[in-house]
Design a protein around this nucleic acid. Structure first.
Lengths: 161, 161
DNA sequence: CCAACATAGGTGACGTGTCAACTATTCCGG
DNA sequence: CCGGAATAGTTGACACGTCACCTATGTTGG
């Protein structure tokens, strides 16, 4: 394409391309890990984390959507797929007949317990174990700044899990 | 889930979650931009960039796959979809009857020319304009380190566009 | 009470991505 | 020259995400 536009500096462009590549490879690597350890996908893992974080292992669809920052329809589709594999099931809500709970099954619990150690190890091994404190600080600042541009609402330090 | 596993420090976890959120939101934002400007998706844009980088606007499927780091099947599927929308077309290769060229059409050229300025502006506006030199350096280092872990082969500064 | 409206959730169509075959050529050793 | 291996590319099945739309229930003002 013609260069009518002010593009990035050479260094910016290099970083940008590496960032893009990273964000394609990183989820793929974590996916492979989970898949090998417990037959889970990354979204499966996220759902199971939120379900097992809840003492009852039961979470309303809306709450799940909010916690994961997913659209409700995405939650619904994904729960359907996970249900088909026996990882979760649905239950009606007595209080509000419109509502539904997603409930983790025994198999779901087993899967995440099997997957978690390797997943954590992978995250640490791929990223955090190799960063100095200064680099971690810088990454904190950078992600904060970009987040602020992307999500003008709800930035700051939106609650650890 | 139970905490048998050594998890991340509070700061690491916060950064990790923000990184994950970022890498969900950033492509979405860029996608919206491209979509509004020229009806393109992010993958469409990537394909068109590589096609228009070539003087002839014709690239072999394999070369495209290599340049974009995509599987050949992904290229094939995506080219089929872009072809349906008139952005590219396929041509046989005289030298090697197995081969195929992907060729950018006039409409394809028009689309990327319309999309490029806004895209660049978005990337700069969302990220690079807000980083100090030191932060850019840090980001360079960090992405380099993580890339090295993810792609033991072909790291370094894999060719600017 | 009931007609509007809001909310919870599901569904179908479609774009995107991966994996596992599959076809058609080219290459290469005998 | 031929038969097998490598290569180029396509295809089909399926997981994942989004969008637009739908149903069913709850809520509220007249």
């Amino acid at each position: 394409m013609s260069t009518d536009v002010e593009w990035l500096t050479a260094e910016q462009e290099q970083v940008w391309r590496r960032w893009l590549a990273l964000n394609a490879m990183l989820p793929a690597a974590l996916h492979r890990e989970l898949q090998a350890d417990a037959g889970l996908s990354l979204p499966d893992f996220d759902v199971l984390v939120h379900l097992t974080d809840n003492p009852a292992g039961r979470v309303r669809v809306s709450d799940l959507a909010h916690a994961l920052q997913w659209e409700k329809s995405r939650v619904s589709h994904h729960v359907t797929r996970m249900q088909r594999r026996g990882l979760v099931c649905r239950e009606g809500c007595p209080d509000d007949a419109r509502g539904a709970f997603v409930v983790v099954t025994t198999a779901g619990r087993a899967a995440i317990e099997q997957a978690a150690p390797g997943h954590v190890r992978a995250v640490r091994d791929l990223i955090f174990d190799h960063l100095t404190d200064a680099e971690l600080q810088a990454l904190d600042t950078i992600t904060r700044k970009v987040s602020a541009r992307l999500a003008p609402t709800s930035d700051g330090g939106a609650a650890g899990r």
